[in-house]
Design a protein around this nucleic acid. Sequence first.
DNA 1: ATGAAAGCGCTAACAC
DNA 2: GTGTTAGCGCTTTCAT
Lengths: 333, 333
Amino acid sequence: MGAATMADVARVAGVSKKTISNYFNGYPYIRPETRARIEAAVAELNYKLNVSARNLSSGRTGTIALAMPEIAHPYFAELAQSVVSAAQRRGLNVVVEVTDGDRERELALLRGENGRYVDGLLLHAIALTADDIASSTLDVPVVLIGDRVHEGRFDFVTVANVDGAYEMTRLLLQSGRRRILALGVDRAEADTAAALRFAGYARALAEAGVGLADDLLVGPLPWNRAEGARAVADARERGVDFDAVFGFNDALALGALGELQRRGVRVPDEVAVAGFDDVQEAALTFPPLTTLDPGREGIAERAVSRLAERLAAYDLPPELFVAVPRVVRRASA
Amino acid sequence: MGAATMADVARVAGVSKKTISNYFNGYPYIRPETRARIEAAVAELNYKLNVSARNLSSGRTGTIALAMPEIAHPYFAELAQSVVSAAQRRGLNVVVEVTDGDRERELALLRGENGRYVDGLLLHAIALTADDIASSTLDVPVVLIGDRVHEGRFDFVTVANVDGAYEMTRLLLQSGRRRILALGVDRAEADTAAALRFAGYARALAEAGVGLADDLLVGPLPWNRAEGARAVADARERGVDFDAVFGFNDALALGALGELQRRGVRVPDEVAVAGFDDVQEAALTFPPLTTLDPGREGIAERAVSRLAERLAAYDLPPELFVAVPRVVRRASA
DNA sequence: ATGAAAGCGCTAACAC
DNA sequence: GTGTTAGCGCTTTCAT
């Protein structure tokens, strides 16, 4: 048996292979009657274009890879959704690679260990160092997404972490809060989200003449909900006095919010709560969470469009795109 | 320039092309010294296997498509994660297709309109009819995932919706609840999740000698959080008396839970709340949500492994796999 | 354990 | 508008 080929379709339709190829590639100048004969032949033979053959011949795959630590986390799920939509709009398919935030897996992608199977790579790495990134031997375009700003060979799409955290902290200060529990602090590595968001927090406090208090800085810790809840429970147990919580991501903030409610603390009257990410759920809690919208759609769109540009034109200089988060004020702060 | 090919690597390593091919395909009988020369040549030339060429030559792509209505919804995000993991374990890549639950897009996939670009399709369709599915002209294996049981040409992986809803309703009845608000009811189409879960609910009530009350059946409505909240608000406004809420998915249940809290109704003391899906968040609310775990991991694993089986062996009879949901009892009911 | 040669099914250049 | 031809870079017999 064996599936029908273009040659078969050409024969049945009584035209040349090239015309069939034209048909499938959207070439406009095909006579309506020819077109009809082609369509009939395609239906008769149940012909399916062999994309592998096209790929080999054209040197492109029409596919990009999206690599990220995980999919199930709301932030990444929403990002993946936006990336896939943006890619679909451009006729690109998306292969999703899950790295578990494992440096080896991230490196493997930058080394192209699986061979050349996509036209480009969108990589949200979390474990790679600047040197790792510089050492890439990949021969297709790469666009990095993430928090650590890596100026270097690749395009980079990131979020204004410092400014975002600064704005949110200012909002809390303006509403009269002075003892703001910061969840997710980690100053060990300079360019992580944890360090950058802390920097914004610290800057706002300094500007307002409010001192940094060690007992209000919680971290390093994993940025998930359980830890957010635990941190708040802990602070209360230890008798730490605070009138606001700023979770450096929504998961931490939502965990904190839940724990405060469990303890009967009124939000925002007694304690205000703010997050960072604007995941869908943030709008749906009670009270809904005040947070920072990083502009996920914009990030995805920019990352995909930049990759698409590189697919078309080589030798573009690396570009840095910084999305500016927008404060989304809801009832929690 | 042009990237290096196997022939180049063969030349530099001083072996034949076939040996290079063997090397990349995990053929074990290659002398260590040969292997070393190959590796040196690969590094020197920065050679990347051309997967398109391999695909054309071998007639396989090593890639499957996962098509679903959306990614950002927690249920689908978690399913996608599990599918990608299961596929990675088998050395398969996953292309994610988003259909928006649009029948035309779902049909396009079953018609193979994009040509042959994957070895198989995992389709979580929500709009397709049995006829649509029967009309598929796709020439690669298809495994359907979903709520509507479609016995037919394709393998089908689903959840025991009736039994699950029955068990949960029994649990509520056993804890003394008699007026159970059912969220998401829709009896219009026989084999939808809405109809099946309702059937389980009704069966449990009947068995317990509790009558169906029209004012306790809410739907049809979209199965999201806002609707869950609205349904509860509505019921309370209208003075409907209920001592439990069974949301036919977690989104509805979580919306209901939030609304009850907003209104100061104690959960589960005054009203118990139960859901269906066991999304991650269900464990993290306050109180944590009692729900049904459909066994997402198992579903994903089964769907992928069935597809992998079909990739290897043709002419397997279609199989129906029904995951039995497990009650996860938490504090809300 | 390795080599030689024949395709896989398409695209792209160019001709008409 | 349509046809001809020469590859794209592998895998796969079949030999050795």
